[in-house]
């Protein structure tokens, strides 16, 4: 290799490194900024009072800043979306990967990708127009804008990632495993659930964790269908999520209220970090097999 080429190679490597560092720099900056701006309010309010306080009254003359309603709403909402969305997504993935003909698989996968591409505000709009009135009529409640509506919207929103990642994992199961099972006299369905699914379990777990991440971080769609009131969560109550708590007050907040919103963002950020750590664990497990 002549000298010019060597210099060129080094320069290109250098550029790649710098571009990579841009991403890392962004993450670091966000982290540092969130911690710095999130801590003061927690100090002033008190960690326990902030995390476990049941009342959020930021606009009153004697304000209280308890975010337990938001935390619980986010946890319940995400859990509900997982409970409702994962079975649908999982069985769809098994069907697409193992049963469906090539044409059906391609068609459904195209539509699933389309679902993934719909902006969340459109989900919210559809939820407002269809889901909210629907819930009001079916369950005879005063207002359909509720945790239930948010759960349904979130469940639909996480479907694409669950279906896609699970399907990919199931597709990657070596055919030899399935042949061995069939050759032992197992039926195809027994083979899917006792050989293919266990072999793809870390990929499916990854899909679920990705779904959790998507659900807990969603703001726009849930704000539009959940009523956005700082209640302790109940299925038919209007509720406010961690994300929507930040989004809905930020534009007019000031002083301690504004700082408390940063603290909420910090809590949300910690949740996401936890989910990412879990994801990393599953991905590592996958490499091991």
């Amino acid at each position: 290799m002549n000298n010019n080429k060597k210099v060129f190679e080094k320069a290109v490597h250098g550029i790649f490194l710098i571009l990579g560092l841009v991403t890392i720099g962004c993450v670091l900056m966000i982290t540092v900024y969130l911690v710095i701006s999130g801590i003061p309010a927690i100090r002033e309010i008190g960690l326990l009072k902030f995390l476990f306080g049941k009342k959020w009254e930021s606009a009153s003359s004697d304000p209280s800043y308890g975010i337990l309603p938001f935390i619980l709403t986010s946890v319940y909402g995400t859990a509900g979306a997982i409970v409702a969305g994962v079975p649908v997504g999982f069985f769809t993935a098994v069907y697409l990967s193992k049963v469906a003909s090539k044409g059906v698989k391609e068609t459904v996968e195209t539509i699933v990708s389309l679902l993934a591409g719909i902006p969340s505000v459109v989900y919210g709009l559809a939820g407002m127009l269809v889901l909210v009135p629907g819930i009001r009529r079916i369950f005879h409640v005063a207002d359909g804008a509720s945790l239930l509506a948010a759960i349904v919207v979130l469940a639909i929103m996480i479907l694409p990632s669950i279906i896609k990642v699970s399907t990919t994992a199931l597709d990657a199961v070596p055919k030899e495993y399935e042949d061995a099972s069939l050759a032992l006299g197992a039926t195809p369905v027994e083979t899917y659930f006792r050989v293919s699914v266990p072999a793809a379990r870390s990929g499916i777990a990854t899909a679920v964790v990705l779904g959790i991440g998507r659900a807990i971080g969603e703001a726009m769609a849930v704000m539009m269908v959940s009523g956005n009131v700082a209640n302790m969560p109940g299925l038919f109550k209007s509720v406010r999520f961690l994300t929507t708590a930040v989004a809905s007050e930020m534009s007019y907040s000031s002083g301690l209220q504004r700082q408390a919103l940063f603290s909420i963002a910090l809590v949300l950020f910690l949740f996401i970090m936890l989910i990412n750590a879990t994801l990393g664990f599953f991905l590592k497990d996958r490499k091991g097999v």
Binding site: E176, G185, T187
Partner: peptide, 20 residues
């Protein structure tokens, strides 16, 4: 056919134990 395959077993070219 599942009963048939129980009576007529098979060993493949490449060893293919299940990942369990």
């Amino acid at each position: 056919v599942n009963e048939l395959r129980r009576e007529i077993g098979m060993v493949f070219q490449k060893p293919n134990p299940f990942p369990m």
